[in-house]
Design a protein around this nucleic acid. Sequence first.
DNA 1: TATATTTGACCCTG
DNA 2: CAGGGTCAAATATA
Length: 266
Amino acid sequence: MLMEEKLVVKELEQGKELANQLMNSLNNPSSSSKVSNEVLISEILSCFQNTIAMMMNLDKKTLKRSPERSDQSNKKRRMLEKKKTEKVKICVGTGQEGTPLDDGHCWRKYGQKYIHGFKNPRGYYRCTHRFTRGCLAVKQVQKSDTNPMCYEVKYVESHTCDITPSTTKHSVSDAKQSDDTIKHMKPEELMLSIEDLDYKKDIFRTFSFSNPEIDDFLEWKDLMETLSPTTSESGITNEFHVSPTDDSCFSSLENILGSTHDLSWM
DNA sequence: TATATTTGACCCTG
DNA sequence: CAGGGTCAAATATA
């Protein structure tokens, strides 16, 4: 079993445990549970999202590593996969070396290469949460040849790792979060924000299922709407309202829990 | 000891 | 075949 597969199982088991906690809490409303039902639901959803992201990542990895990867079908598939990229030019006022491109995300360097025609090497970074949350965000950073204060940054794919229990707990508008983030930013980070406003709109989305590669999105959405009758029509939101009187949603939950007794088959 | 970075090798695409 | 992108072992660092 691959490392990532173990993580998927672990995540699912955690989700199952949380769901059981929720079930107990719902069956005994009088018991003074430490964690509120809303928090439990948020954490369960977070588990699902993480699992999906990990599975998507795993699928890609398996395809890439399989001996049939040179097949025409795979070639065609790759041709069709157009990566979402965004180019940004960033000037660092302080001119200091190190990591002037802190954009609020955790990046891990995985490569560096001298590119033909450029004096400075290009650094390759991917999201720290690539394997834990399946975030596919990648960026390339290259110091400008003409102006050493400037960096050319190319973002490939947006972050899908912005989900944390604290962010899923409450519904936070994109604008508000951007505002809060900017307040804590250093001046050079603000430059990035201003120049890269469009991209920021994307990466500050805290809880999104916009990944077009998730083919089963509609099924997932249906399930979520069954669980949460107040979820908006336009898409899944962070906001979940659970009415203690709504038995239908509890029975759905019971059905789901009942059908996933054991994960050991994996 | 866990996590991050470096860097040469390898793979894919044009 | 050249060039760009990624992998993964070795190494560094906290």
